[in-house]
Design a protein around this nucleic acid. Sequence first.
DNA 1: CAACGTGC
Length: 773
Amino acid sequence: MAQQPSFHLDDDTSRYIKGTLIATVYHQTESLYTVARIRVKATNENYNEKEVMITGILPPLREDELYLFYGKFKDHPKYGKQYEVELFKKEMPQSKEAMIQYLSSDLFKGIGKKTAEHIVDVMGNDAITKLLEAPEYISQIPKLTEEQAKNLHGALLENRGLDQVMMAVQPYGLGPQLAMKIFQTYQDEAVTVIKNEPYRLIEDVPGIGFHRADEIAKGNGMQVNHPERIQAACLFLLRDQGTDLGHSYLPMEDLLEGVRKLLADGKDTVDEMSIFREVQDMETEKRLIIKEKVVYLPSLYFAERGFAQKMNTLLQNQKSDYDLPDEKLEDELSALEKRLNMNYAKSQREAIKKALTSSLMVLTGGPGTGKTTVIKGIVELYSEIHGISLNPEDYRGKKEPFPVLLVAPTGRAAKRMTESTGIPAHTIHRLLGWKGGGHFEKNEDEPIEGKLLIVDEMSMVDIWLAYSLSKALPEQIQIIFVGDEDQLPSVGPGQVLKDLLQTEHIPQTRLIDIYRQSEGSSIIRLAHEMKNGQVPEDLLIPQNDRRFFPCSGEHVFQAILQVCENAIKKGYTSRDIQVLAPMYKGPVGIDRLNVELQRLFNPEKQKQRQLQVANVFYRKGDKVLQLVNQPEDQVFNGDIGEIVAVIYARENTEKEDQIVISFDEIEVTYKRSEFHHFTHAFCCSIHKSQGSEYPIVVLPVVKSFYRMLKRNLLYTAITRSKEYLILCGEQEAFNWAVQRSDETERYSGLKLRLEETWLEKDNTNDTLLNETN
DNA sequence: CAACGTGC
């Protein structure tokens, strides 16, 4: 018999645990993040326990339901073995009560509690399963009116679940995975949503963009110029495409043109006037915000506005406490220099003094300008002048909270801060108490406690996070933002650091190059020229600290290997040399480089112990890159380590393959189930290298990277090198990257918001003054 | 095409 191709959840490719709820351990209503204890009824996992802890994004679970969880086991450092659910499915209600409740729910029109009870009495607890298998039984249920029978039949078919969803989306080329996601998202309402509100899929189901939803809508008979269609396209363009490029808004013209293109379908087009009208309607409904001829998603507008307002409030709170006499500061600074046995440069002294006397300050400078030194100085001098202890132990059990807060957007940057200051630093998310879905425990109602806050690596903070942080700030706090505006921008929308620096009334200090002698270093000079959009004439001429090997095509790959081989002969190791590349795939991609570089730096010895993951072999001596944060191990995303031991399953009590990696002094053991927490690091991505420095950087620069070649990416890469920089590739590609900075420009209104809210404050003050006069 | 953080 010819069978329709179908996706069976119970086939052996998907692992599952079927079970019932014992107790919900944790459930967050905003994000739906759930931890629950489950009684195992059946599983195809290698698991023999009666109970299991599951985690995942799930609706509130009920005790009377049977669930099918698809996922995999994870070893949580604190909570042990847990099943991480990727997809789940609700089995039909099992108990009599649940079945009655289900049948009398809104899903089955015309069937109330009485009728539902009757059906279950006649058909049993598995009434629905039975009726689905043999719908003809419906007519045999006594006391059911013809109308009720018809409704029941229709609803049963409609809500049959996954099969129905798959059938509904099949004509649109959506595979079983997406069908499953849709079903998971809407459960019983999935088919209804697909039929009536297909554009909701864009928002709710990752992997469905405007075009896919639009295909479905079209299949449902959606008119080309239907308001719903136009509105969905507007939101999609702003949310998905705009924020992907880092924009906080889109200019009206860009939006209209973009939406017109998105909606055009052969001869069927929608004119920009109609789109404009919809945009206006959406503004009336407060689903969009229009300011100065640009269009915002409300969340982004309020983030800009709220952050700007808070910054200005802090500025106006300039208290007399901060008004320290310059003489005292100078004296204390000199004493500090003596104590730390060092000398601050003039711009560093100014930075430290300004930081201590301002309620808000931005500190910026390129790599090697001593931002870290200044942070340390600020903290030390602050404690000195205010006579406060910097020993966290002194605050244990006391009412007074630790007054100095240090944070950074990434775990690794926080770790570096901890190391350089001796004071515990955290991620911004940790400080604010992340709750999922963009919500935090700390906010305007429950502000954080502290007197001085320093935020490092501010270039990586997007406008949403900046707003969340600003909301949680008490009014009496001194805050210092630190960062390098020429580095890679934040993943999320906005360019908060840049905008702060471009706003005149925001107190700021720029550090100039001090440490890596500018005159001696042609790397620094190169970086400077690049900043200004220039390529030095001597790019190809060997310098004392950099070289450019011109080559193209396959030669680039060979040149990189040759450079490394020569370095090895000179006695350098993989610790000294870091190869960087912008992307993983391709002929000069990270993946391919790592395979060959492993062969060079850590060749396989006879009978060497090694463990295989996919096509990669790990062995002792391999340089590896940590990919996730493991705060409990003091190891963070981006940390580089070295494999120091390979242990086979038969050699340990857990009977699981293990790899031990050493990060500086710390050694961390990974089980096979955690091997995806690291990867080879002979070559790593430029993005991952952000925040690290290496003695020697080797960098391929080729046209095949053209999509990624932008000025700030190249800048970030070359400024990672402390002593020597080796470029291999095409000069044309280098020039191209330096020229390309406009394309990375982001639409941001933060500078404007900072200025307008500043003026509004002035006005309020004037009014107050006038009134008191 | 690459990239951040996180809940018991």
